[in-house]
Design a protein around this nucleic acid. Sequence first.
RNA 1: AGCGGGGUGGGCUAGCUUGGUUUAGGCUGCAGGGCUCAUAACCCUGAGAUCGUUAGUUCAAAUCUAACCCCCGCUACCA
Length: 726
Amino acid sequence: MPKEKWIITSAWPYVNATPHLGNIIGSVLSGDVFARFLRLQKNTEVLYVSGSDMHGTPVAVDAIKKGITSEELAYSKHEDIVKLFSDWNLQYDNYTQTHNPTHIKFTQDFYLEIQKNGYIIEEETEGYYCPEDDFFLPDRFIEGTCPYCGQSGARGDQCDNPSCGRVLESNQLLNPECKICLLKNKHTTPIRKKTKHWYLDFPQLEDKLRDFIVNNHYINPNAKTLCLNSIKEGLPRRSITRDLKWGIPAPFEGAENKTIYVWFEAVLGYISAVKEWAQIKEQPDLFDYYWKDPKTKSVYFIGKDNIIFHWIIFPGLIFAYNKGKSIEDQLTLPYNVSSTEFLMYENDKFSKSRGIGIWADEALELLPADYWRYALIRNRPEGRDVSFIWNEFENSINELNDKIGNFIHRTFTFIYNKFDAQIPGIVDLDDDDREILNLIERAPKEIGELFLNYRLKDAVSKIVDIATKGNVYLNTKKPWSVIRTDKEKAGQIFNICAQLSKTLGILLAPICPDAFKTIIKITNLRKAPQEILWDDISSLEVKTGTKIGKPIPVFKKFKLNDMLRDFKDIRESKGQKFTLPNSLINLKDDSLQEKSQEGDKIKNEANHITYKFFQKFLFKTARIVNIDRVQKTSKEMNKETLYEFTLSIGRNITNKTYYVNTSESIEQLRKYIGKDVVYLANLEKIPDSVKKIKNQSILIMHAMNNTDTISLIIVDKFVPLGSLIR
RNA sequence: AGCGGGGUGGGCUAGCUUGGUUUAGGCUGCAGGGCUCAUAACCCUGAGAUCGUUAGUUCAAAUCUAACCCCCGCUACCA
């Protein structure tokens, strides 16, 4: 039986931006987990490829700013990403970049082919050009005065003035200036200049693309809606060339000095990366073997911002390329594009400039990759946007540690201590035992299906369920009691737990590759980790009599406060902003807050408090049993009329007193006697400036208007005195 | 404004395509209990939700329809 061929890819990270957790989960990590899962299957041949997107305006501009060449900048950033991804345990068969000769040649040939097939249109337009930089300026690199609000500093695409914010055409700007020159403290007025561009004729491809999307079984519903709407609105022609030096030279006749727009070449990297991989292996035929076989399954892992590019533009390019070719010369169309929604950070957008979010490099300074991989997949935004929330992150890590890690640890510690470090044998099985063995038997298929349906989040959740069943099993079987009377029976329980531990280890392999290796090492299986297959989850046994080493916990416990302190240190050591998220402002540990001005700022500005914070207020009911005028005790009090409210919160409990100063008469106030009111019971002390008299430890909730008459919050039905209010 | 997505116990989330198998599932948190092999872990029980609002379709609606309210994206010569 021929093997199933898979090409797995992830979106190409742009070199000029360090990836954040959202980028990681959206593309590269999801792809890696899926690829790792597939590699464990018996009948698969899997390639996982991607690379850095090196070209484009931002790199060119950044290089100008730094005074180095675009190439130097791109390569150095690419190296950083390679290192970073390897630290994240992202296992690519080829992680390349878009400035390699194979890709450049492939892209150029590809577009000539499309042109030959009649999908390229030429059109002349006019744009701004900076003679100083010899650079055609994208709209956002032109700065000028907004024609609507008159504010200077408006960009060519939009006015930055928050009260205006209009979307602009660059030729509407008054007094346009080149932004790149401004950054160098020069003032240059860009000139309008005619330029020709090459366009891809998408309207020609609409029908094919519609059919392609409608007939795909795997496309996720959100993406499908988006694409079909976009086709319904009519696909625009897209310009595929740019007046920019940094990029792949456009191969069209008359297109000298122009490059291919990054989006129109980076996607081709999916194809050229395999070509390059085959060349490196010195088996160039392998390229056709993968890419020109219609049965090859190619899967693209991306964030939702990329859906149009992968479901419409990329397949469109392939359709255009394939036109008129025989089946064996055609490139294969996407089998699936698995798009995630966005990961937010504490309900906010990731933002480098505002310091909102966690970046992929700093994450690993806080915890090893396995933990992040687990928590991100556990919380993968599959159906809608999801927030990274520190408290939830803590939950996820603790779950991994307490449910899975601790189950494995309690199993092997017991075997090590009580069975002389040897896996005990099976005597006779009862229903409970069989249930666990069945669970192991079913696991590869059940969880494998979830992976194959791109339901990585559900897969993790099922793995946790299995660990929970293991814990329940141990708790019901109580082998620590059984061992006193029947050592063999107790041993059997642990044999089963050892099998289950191994099962958990392999199930985790795609997600936590390091933990997987550790667990396999503990169980001392006959196979090395790299030889293990998915089916071994149920079929590879931990043999009776196997000697095990002294167990070391697979995972560690997590302390949120420590981590946040580390995080803050990391940021501060780099001179970057650290912002304590709103949800954490009321942490018990205030070492983070004292130093964090940002946190304080938010604290003052916060419109909302967390429920946890609210829960700290003990509002209770009490009855006013007396109101009296207070004797003046000091000079300060002379001008104020102070009343003492005596509250009862039930029999046998000391009455509480509360003081209020008001210009209302005692007769007016006495009508409140006998009423039940709401008070705050757990006030520590009132600051001197507020305190009118003695130590006051409660507050009645009341409203006071400017004539100093007071309104109390009265309880309108009978409830027991001292009832807690929620 | 237009287009798109979302609003589910205190928090986070599943279910919605294909209405009934859910007295709305899970994790966490809270209250109580059990266990003591293990990393203060594990296990059990309980309380807690008008499934954004209103109207409708239906024997039956979180799920379908309409209107409305609130949140968030997109509407780039950024990738």
